[in-house]
Design a protein around this nucleic acid. Structure first.
Length: 465
RNA sequence: GGCGCUAUAGCCAAGUGGUAAGGCCAGGGUCUGCAAAACCCUCAUCCCCCGGUUCAAAUCCGGGUGGCGCCUCCA
């Protein structure tokens, strides 16, 4: 199995530090707002990586964090009048709920910054003792980037490079503009904890280093997060942890691509954030996953208007086939090793979910052909597909349940005006009377109103064009 | 200005040395009063440009150009 390592910019053969065991950590969400599709994608891909490693026989410990104290949370707290800790807890609850709706599993361990304040303070104290960090009179503590020779190794930049674009705030008392905060002194009315440097709160980067150490010790196998975290967040984690331990912190650094909407970066300022909660109103969680996994996790995903509808359509087709097979032959027995080994072959190459999903079209073509030919082994193939692909979070539902869900979500999106419904009914009657001229005239009328009539065997359906 | 990612058909997208997967769209056909659906067929002599390495390159190297991102909070 090969994994792309951001540190070396190559795909490397995967071999954990300790045989048979994998320690992995993925940076979670700063809980200042709602979960968007980018958060969902990141949670999804690391959930899949964890599950695939387990399938390969590894015993995986997977930790994720919630950053539950930061500037934005404090700002939200001010705006809403809700205490920061309560605001964070409420947001976490909301995010957890939507992730469950997405059917993304919890990690082995959930870590929260506010529950690790002692670990963070210890970590900072040790850095100061070793000469890698310094406290300034106002109560801030900074990491001294010049004290760590490897600084910049992940993002491939030097301290000089960084000074080029760094913003210098006059209020800060840093020795070097590239130094970053480990501890921030509390301002009036802010949530804070007692520390050797006064009342304050942890900086963002230190929490991941400290919680990693608390959860795993000095070294881990896989560390993940969005590509936007490479610098400065992950660079700083390396600096903090490695200057303390003197050991390589992470064996494989992995980074997922970001979500773009019609070619533009998704951001709050552009107002194009797609919230999971909203998407789930229109699409099944499986369609959302299918859509996201059609692109390699390392690439950015460009969400175009037809991405989710197409994914839903494909899944609907697949589920219809599953339904037809199961109603004829019942539930089969998974035993098609070809489907499963081909899937593993794709996943072994840096979790190539895009390739694995594209195989489904061929697989279902064969299943349909078998069904038409009266070959009952198609039921076994269906059972295998469900078993194999459930790792990606699809085909986990009962076919009837899925089809009903999609229908109700589709109805949720479009409601047909009564006028059109009336015309369609008139047309159906004309059709039954074999009055083709009138039926066609009514079809044209409905068409003008922006709807289309589709006849089935037993009735008709009206859809928005 | 520095750093990184990326460039494959109208669109999405896989493919890291052996001669272009898959999906959408489009076109043709079968079927059906018509339409839709379904099914079948077709759809990149070529992978941004220019050089180089090689028997062989979309794939490796060098140089360009374009797009995106990071350098401030960000999955």
């Amino acid at each position: 199995m090969r994994i792309y390592n951001t540190l070396t910019r190559t795909k490397e053969e995967f071999a954990p530090l300790e045989k048979g065991k994998v320690r992995m950590y993925a940076c979670g969400i700063t809980v200042s707002g709602e979960a968007h599709i980018g958060h969902g994608f990141q949670a999804l891909i690391y959930d899949i990586i964890r599950k695939y490693l387990e399938k390969k026989g590894y015993s995986v410990t997977y930790a994720r964090n919630y950053t539950d104290v930061d500037d934005k949370i404090i700002a939200r707290s001010r705006e809403t009048g809700i205490p920061a800790d309560r605001y964070a807890a409420m947001t976490i609850e909301k995010i957890d709920r939507v992730m469950r709706e997405m059917d993304i599993d919890d990690p082995t361990v959930w870590l929260k910054a506010t529950e690790n304040i002692d670990n963070i303070i210890d970590f900072i104290s040790e850095l100061i003792a070793k000469g890698h960090a310094y406290a300034v009179p106002c109560g801030d503590v900074y990491f001294d980037v010049t004290s760590f020779k490897g600084y910049g190794c992940l993002s491939n930049r030097t301290v000089e490079d960084m000074l080029d674009g760094v913003r210098i705030d006059n209020g800060e008392e840093k020795r070097n503009p590239a130094d970053f905060a480990l501890w921030k002194a509390a301002k009036e009315g802010e949530i804070s904890w007692r520390s050797p440097w006064g009342e304050g709160r942890p900086g963002w980067h230190i929490e991941c280093s400290a919680m990693n150490r608390a959860a795993f010790g000095e070294q881990i196998d896989i560390h993940g997060g969005g590509r936007d975290l490479i610098f400065p967040h992950h660079e700083n984690e390396i600096a903090q942890t490695e200057s303390l331990t003197g050991k390589r912190f992470v064996k494989y650094w992995t980074h997922n691509g970001l979500i773009k909407v019609n070619g533009q970066k998704m951001s709050k300022s552009l107002g194009n954030s797609l919230l999971l909660e909203d998407l789930l109103k229109s699409y099944s969680n499986e369609a959302i996953k299918f859509a996201l996994l059609q692109t390699n996790y390392r690439n950015d995903i460009n969400i175009t208007d037809n991405l989710f509808p197409d994914a839903e359509k494909h899944l609907t087709d697949f589920y219809r086939t599953i339904s037809a097979v199961e109603s004829k032959y019942g539930k089969g027995v998974a035993g098609n090793s070809e489907i499963d080994s081909r899937f593993d072959e794709c996943m072994d190459d840096d979790f190539n979910t895009a390739l694995a999903l594209s195989d489904l079209f061929g697989i279902f073509k064969k299943i349909s052909a078998k069904l038409a030919a009266g070959d009952s082994t198609c039921a076994d193939d269906v059972a295998q597909v469900k078993k194999t692909y459930s790792l990606l979070g699809i085909f986990k539902k009962d076919a009837a349940q899925y089809l009903a869900e999609v229908e109700s979500k589709a109805n949720n999106v479009e409601s047909v005006p009564a006028e059109v419904v009336g015309l369609a009914e008139k047309r159906w009657q004309a059709k039954l009377a074999r009055n083709w001229a009138e039926a066609d005239a009514l079809r044209a009328e409905i068409d003008r109103l922006g709807y289309a009539v589709k006849d089935g065997k037993e009735g008709y359906e009206v859809v928005k064009k």
